[in-house]
Design a binder for these strands. Structure first.
Lengths: 151, 151
DNA sequence: TGCAATTTGTTCGGATGCGAACGATATTTT
DNA sequence: AAAATATCGTTCGCATCCGAACAAATTGCA
């Protein structure tokens, strides 16, 4: 009779989100937005990056990704420009402002990370991350149930 | 420059939620609702339980808890009745239907839990849960930042 | 070539969660 | 006792995210 599927994980995620959003509120950006922006900044150096890559990396639906990227563009943190090769794609190009934002966000994030992991040994943290990754993988494997809208 | 605050945790939580909600869709209940209901069923045996207890247990804001409990009542899964001692409180009393629902949900939840933890040793899982609990605790400790609306 | 299927991103309506402001009831202080 | 304070739950408007339906562009196949 005892079960708790995802109870702890959702509770923890919930707290992380609240803490991080509060930490970043002054910068006018949310945790999710900052992660997406960081991902774009980091990966656009290696080659062109598109909305579909963001969807895949964060498990977001198309509509949600559209909204986040529109918002980031409106804030002047990136530009979505058409590419000649394929008229469907819009390449995501971070602006100089994005670099600043990423640096500022990084400071807040590291602070929150430090508080969060206080008193946890590197070894424990390692196991934690490995288990989390394995769970993520397991869930991908049994994905066919439900939503077909995201990659 | 490398940071990922809550990236993995949010991604995993996201996937758990999607999987569980899909699993429970046939029963007409969401993962969050089912967890709250289970909590009420389990704890109402030990003594009266109120909305504030739900808020504390799941880190929900007052308004969110109100919404979930109103919904569960509308579905006939619980009754919120006034108590004579304190006119502010509404005791949460699960119905017989709630017992059935909890049993049905339990089956689906155990299936999802099994899939999710496949290939993970009990020892690893133990560490994972301990670290998650420690992180949760750490986040509670630095709570004063932001929202004052929830317990 | 020409038409079907796929891919990419948008818009729309709905669900869930939050914070602020509120009314009602209890408790504490004066 | 009266007034200030605290607690409990509700309502409201806002943000985030989802899935479905859609338009535009590309690819694959006959």
């Amino acid at each position: 009779m005892e079960w708790d599927c995802g109870g702890w994980i959702n509770l923890l995620s919930h707290k992380v989100k609240r803490r991080l959003d509060a930490q970043l509120a002054d910068l006018g950006i949310t945790g999710m937005q900052s992660r997406v922006l960081y991902h774009i900044v980091k990966n656009s150096a290696k080659g062109p990056i598109f909305q579909r890559d963001v969807e895949a990396a964060f498990g977001l639906s198309r509509s949600t990704a559209t909204g986040i990227l529109q918002m980031l563009e409106k804030e002047g943190l990136l530009v979505r420009c058409a590419v000649p090769d394929d008229g469907r794609l819009k390449q995501l190009v971070p602006t100089a402002k994005a670099q600043q934002m990423v640096a500022q966000v990084g400071a807040g994030v590291r602070e929150t990370e430090a508080r969060m992991t206080a008193g946890i040994s590197p070894g424990q943290l390692q196991v934690f991350l490995e288990v989390a990754a394995k769970m993520s993988e397991n869930l991908d494997a049994c994905a066919p149930l439900g939503g077909r809208n995201c990659g």
